[in-house]
Nucleic acid binder design. Structure first.
Length: 485
DNA sequence: TTTTGAGTTGTTCGA
DNA sequence: GTCGAACAACTCAAA
């Protein structure tokens, strides 16, 4: 049975280049059966959110097209992935199964179970690293414990052997003689219909491996030079916007790492060098979050710092939560961010911190509710990054901000969106307000509001809470955590 | 074991 | 408007 196929199970590695599982199968000479399984059960409550589903539809369409160029195609199946894979092994008489690792707790358990079951049946099964620069089990403190502080973690990473150079995509792939039936992606109904809210996503994003590579190239030719400072400016395209491509594995961190390094070696004056390093550091944060999730699988639901288990959150307030979600808090920078998120499935990172701080500290709503909303609405929703970042803002995570650090939405707006460009773009009903009031319309005199066509409480909300009071209340609540130490 | 240095991303107050 | 200091102590990681 020399033509028994190898199943390459694609997961969060939807690319042909720098894909060790695919490379291994291609080199083996066996026919390659490319598989993707839509599995809404394994990760429990963390099944793919709406924006992620939109992205996935297009990413799989692009991957199938790329595979066809090489001579095969993508087989789609739905169901609990371990069962689906096992059934397909029987169906096609596969001799070998290979995949690239995931680090979510449900996926890890499932993969371990499946691997054991496949081995027990004499199937050759391998797993590989396509998602990280450094595997979580290779980075630990001298006491062999996981790092809980970013800077020493990243230092330790940089002392490890450099990540391997990415491999090219296989030049050609041969599918199995009998290509098994694939489900139709349309039947998965990943795209929103009634209503179709994805217009802003379509205008903003192009999923797929080729688009990811183009995005990286554009970033390396442009914004990376100013990344060190401009990445904080939501009114400017100062970031790479690679996050959704990275999440779905349309590009891998090794590819980014080596592309940035190559550029540094070629033409890196000192100013670009520090910007390039601050960009690579962001990859480091991605690694750090994945490490945290790997070592603390309850990260998405429970505070890393147990003292926060009984944090005195405010009484349940659905109206405040809805106002936050809908971008109707009365704080322009917060509302701009939340509307950007809803419109295009992405929010600038600086603004993510501002809106998260507002939900947690001004509204006293548990961070898990913000995490859930982001999970559903972000095209780059990633279990590790999302959980680690929300916990960080809440002060209960690794490397947590000091409790007294409460973002002031007015000052943050004035500092990072000084002329209000970002607010005007996403909160158009304020667009005619003068700069000096754009981040605090409630301080504008009546004639300025009138001239701008703004009626507070009607065309734009009054502030949901008074920030100065909310800040004091938050600091009081955080005092109780200290006391419970 | 003990000690030491350091910790992504802020705000407010007073000079 | 701008600047520096205070905010409060704690935990982590390494020497």
């Amino acid at each position: 049975m020399t033509d028994a196929p190898t199943i390459v199970w694609f997961r969060q590695d939807l690319r042909l280049a720098d894909n060790p599982a695919l490379a291994r199968a291609a080199k083996s000479g066996a026919p390659v059966l490319a598989l993707y399984v839509l599995d809404d059960e394994t990760e429990g409550p963390w099944r793919l959110g709406g924006a992620s589903r939109w992205w996935l539809h297009h990413a799989l369409t692009a991957l199938d097209k790329d595979l066809r160029r090489l001579g095969t195609s993508l087989t789609l199946r739905q169901g609990p992935a371990d069962r689906v894979v096992m059934d397909l092994v029987d169906e096609v008489g596969a001799a070998s199964v290979t995949w690239n690792r995931c680090y979510e707790p449900g996926a890890r358990e499932r993969d371990a179970r499946l691997k054991a079951a496949l081995k027990a049946r004499g199937i050759d099964v391998t797993s590989h690293n396509a998602a990280l620069l450094f595997e979580p089990w290779t980075v630990s403190t001298q006491d062999d414990k996981p790092y809980r502080v970013f800077t020493p973690f990243w230092r330790a990473c940089l002392n490890l052997p450099e990540p391997a150079a990415p491999e090219r995509a296989p030049a050609r792939l041969t599918g199995p003689a009998d290509q098994p039936a694939s489900e139709a992606i349309e039947d998965w109904a990943l795209l929103p219909t009634a209503p179709d809210w994805a217009g802003g996503l379509r205008e903003t994003w192009q999923p797929g491996e080729a688009a990811a590579a183009a995005r990286l190239d554009a970033f390396l030719d442009g914004a990376i030079d100013g990344y060190g400072t401009l990445r904080n400016r939501p009114d400017i395209d100062g970031t790479s916007r690679l996050s959704p491509h990275l999440h779905f594995g349309e590009i891998g961190p090794r590819q980014i790492w080596h592309a940035v390094k190559a550029r540094l070696a070629n033409n890196g004056p000192n100013s670009t060098e520090s910007s390039a390093w601050s960009f690579l550091r962001e990859l480091g944060w991605r690694e750090f979050s994945t490490n945290l999730l790997y070592h603390f699988p309850r990260l998405p639901t429970e505070p890393l710092d147990q003292r926060f288990a009984d944090f005195p959150w405010g009484a349940r307030d659905d109206k405040a939560l809805s106002a936050w979600q809908g971008g109707l808090t009365g704080y322009p920078i917060v509302d701009a961010g939340m509307r950007q998120l809803y419109a295009i499935g992405w929010m600038h990172n600086r603004v993510r911190m501002i809106v998260a701080s507002f939900l947690i500290k001004d509204l006293m709503i548990p961070w898990q509710q913000g995490e859930a909303w982001f999970w559903d609405t972000l095209v780059d929703a990633d279990l590790a990054n999302n959980a680690a970042s929300w916990q960080w803002v809440a002060g209960c995570g690794a490397d947590a901000a000091p409790y007294f650090r409460v973002f002031n939405p007015v000052l943050q707006g004035e500092k990072f969106d000084a002329d209000g460009t970002y607010v005007r773009r996403w909160v158009p009903e304020l667009s005619s307000l003068p700069n000096r009031y754009i981040h605090k319309p409630w301080e504008a005199p009546a004639d300025a509001l009138k001239a701008a066509g703004v009626t507070l409480g009607e065309t734009y909300p009054l502030p949901l809470v008074n920030h100065a009071d909310a800040r004091k209340a938050a600091l009081n609540a955080y005092e109780t955590v200290k006391a419970s130490a």
